[in-house]
Amino acid sequence: MPRGRKVNSSGEKSKKLLQEKAIELFSQFGYHETKISDIVKAANLTQPTFYLYFENKESLYNDLILQFRNEFLENVNRINVGNEDNFIEKLQTNFTALFKFFASNPHLTKIGFYQTEESEELKNIFSQILEEKLKERVEFSDHDIRIFINSIVGAIERLTLTMLFTKEKEPEQLASELINIYFAKELICR
């Protein structure tokens, strides 16, 4: 934040507006096709105003990626599968929270979870965290847990695009369907 600016000042509002418009444009057209002039035009501001808050387009983009990464990982790290009695219920609650996060940030999710080079790394981290949380609760004696976990992450990725963002299904519905598909009672052994 520039020195001397008060919280909720018009400067803070201008910065937030530039970020919001950048998120929309980056998600729609991608990083390379979006120009600073497009962002300031969409925000109805000037390029000098842009440079008050951001060094360049790359720094703005990197800030947005970092914002998504931090919020996404906060959600993923909150995954708690609970004890044996409420394992399925807790997992469904966690998946619902993740889908709600995506639904509340669709443009930022398109950038951070699909378009950036870092998105694959994020999905790998997500897979590792899920594997850690689930390996103590689900029996995988005849199957490779990594295939199971990666298929869940892939399903979440695909369902977010095809059903959540299109508003065909609500977060609760998607989480419930995932649980019903992946965690039938006969899979739960511990």
Results as ranks from 00 to 15, higher is better:
P48C: 08
P48W: 04
T49E: 10
F50A: 03
Y51G: 00
Y51C: 08
L52K: 15
L52W: 10
Y53W: 11
Y53R: 05
Y53I: 09
F54V: 03
E55V: 14
E55T: 15
E55N: 14
E55Q: 15
K57V: 05
K57C: 08
E58W: 08
L60V: 04
L60E: 07
N62P: 01
N62G: 03
L64Y: 10
L64I: 08
L64V: 04
L64F: 11
I65G: 01
I65N: 10
L66C: 10
L66P: 00
Q67W: 14
N70E: 15
N70G: 07
E71S: 13
E71P: 03
F72R: 03
F72D: 06
L73A: 04
E74D: 13
V76P: 06
V76N: 05
V76L: 05
N77G: 03
I79V: 10
I79S: 09
I79F: 14
I79W: 06
N80L: 07
N80A: 09
V81K: 00
V81P: 07
G82W: 04
N83W: 09
N83S: 13
N83K: 14
N86K: 09
N86I: 11
F87T: 03
F87Q: 05
F87A: 04
I88E: 14
E89R: 10
E89P: 04
L91F: 08
L91T: 07
L91H: 06
L91M: 04
L91R: 02
L91Q: 06
Q92V: 02
Q92Y: 03
Q92P: 01
Q92T: 12
T93P: 11
T93Y: 14
N94P: 08
N94E: 14
N94V: 02
N94F: 02
N94H: 09
F95D: 11
A97G: 12
A97F: 10
A97H: 12
L98N: 08
F99S: 06
F101S: 04
F101I: 09
F101D: 10
A103P: 02
A103R: 10
S104Y: 13
N105D: 03
N105R: 07
P106L: 01
P106K: 06
P106V: 08
H107G: 00
H107L: 02
H107I: 03
H107Y: 14
L108E: 08
T109S: 11
I111W: 09
F113P: 06
F113Y: 10
F113S: 06
Y114E: 01
Y114D: 04
Q115W: 05
Q115Y: 11
E117F: 12
E117N: 12
E117Y: 15
E117T: 13
E118V: 05
E118W: 00
E118G: 07
E118T: 11
S119F: 00
S119M: 02
S119Y: 01
S119R: 07
S119C: 08
E120R: 15
L122E: 04
L122V: 04
K123D: 10
N124I: 02
N124F: 11
F126V: 05
S127Y: 01
Q128G: 12
Q128A: 15
Q128Y: 14
I129F: 10
